[in-house]
Amino acid sequence: MTEQTISTPNKDLSKELSKEHARDVFRAMLRARVLEIKLSNLYKAGKIVGGVYIGKGQEAVSASLGACLTWNKDVFAPLIRDQAGRTAFGEDPLDATRTYLGSAKGPMRGRDGNLHRGRPAEGLLAMISHLGAAVAQVGGVLLAKRIKGELDGCVGATCVGDGATSTGAFHEGLNFIAVERLPMVVIIADNQFAYSTPNDRQYACDDLIDRAKGYGLEGHSVDGTDMLECATVIGNAVAKARSGGGPQLIVAKLLRLSGHGEHDDGSYVATELQEGRYGRDCNDVGKQQLIEKGWLTELEYSKWMLEFNAEAQEAVAVAQREDGPNPYKEEWSAIASPSLKGLQ
């Protein structure tokens, strides 16, 4: 029987957060922020074809998830605001710059762009744009592992926004992972806007966490701007799913600190929201929290910033030097079966 408790954040701090883990989470948040600022600047300079979507304000949630997952063992389906989760999980920043800049050496080889990238064979799924579609997909990876007898100790995870909760795919996916009681963590980053649509036009329940019980999932609420709380609650939920506790739903309250994409100034976000509790920057909060705990010094922080700026600079420079795909040498076949290649 699935446990159906809805915990408030501070009731679920059963496991103490380690200094090492908290620093890992914060480092991923910083690395992602630095990389995304670089990508945003490239976009504004006209160097990136297509859109740029950043996770500013969601780094604490995303990195807290990614930092608990193991590359080549667990499975993670990030969405558009999960650079921090990707980084924490182990994605090479070159995968990001190569995909954004269209290098043929990137994992998508110019066939797909920006955030639609992944390394599915290594556990990082490549999102499609249709929201909620990844829930069942991650569940399928886990079900396959179960059939193969390889599920023990593995966990699957995906993030969605408040908008995705209105889709049929999200509903079907959550119900499916609950029925199969799969070791999975689904995070709803409730950032209050789906593109420009505010929550009161998206859902009518008091709090999305109330849905957990209906699906038979264990639910956890968290302040998505509070890094230590995110790292603790999300970390414990991942540990619980991994150790046989069944699927976990986390609702993180926060505010998107950017437009939907870099083409969007987000002018529809009211000033009161920006100045309110969730308008604070989780990266600032995280830095402050680590310094207060004595887990980080200003000097270390400055060194990290130098390190991550250099890393992002190098990743961009490498990708910019590389050729894009050659349309005349492209295979132009979407078929994998050798016997059917080239046939229509």
């Binding site: 069942a136 997909q137 569940g139 396959a144």
Partner: peptide, 28 residues
Amino acid sequence: PDRVIDAPISEDAMIGMAVGAAIEGMRP
């Protein structure tokens, strides 16, 4: 018994599941 599995009435999730399982090397 482990390889013939009843699905909920969720055609979208059924195929989503299959895609994930196939990525993991199965042939659903």
